[in-house]
Amino acid sequence: MKGRVLDGCALLMTGRDTVVTALEDLEAVREIALGEGKGPVVLREAVPFGHKVAVERIDAGDHVVKYGEVIGEATERIEPGAWVHTHNCESTRGRGDVRSDGEAVAGGERR
């Protein structure tokens, strides 16, 4: 598997990533040791298998990075240990509902 398994339960795919993937259902308040001189993160909520956890603070509008690549941007400030999913991270691509200036397109469906 590409990447590094942290604490036997989460996968950090590259050193640039700001999120890790849960390799099992993780319970709230569980600690994940990050290694490499960084302190552990404590889960702020339960995170299911395959879902993502922030390993550093991601400010609103900042890129969320997995595979060493941008997978979207934060829609609010995301604290370390928080579950990262559609409630706080969104795609920057395929946005037919907004124009380049950010205005909603008339009649466009905002989901």
């Binding site: 299911p48 997978i71 979207g72 969104e90 691509r93």
Partner: peptide, 8 residues
Amino acid sequence: GGLTTIEE
């Protein structure tokens, strides 16, 4: 299943 965006 844990996928958040089309990029991911």
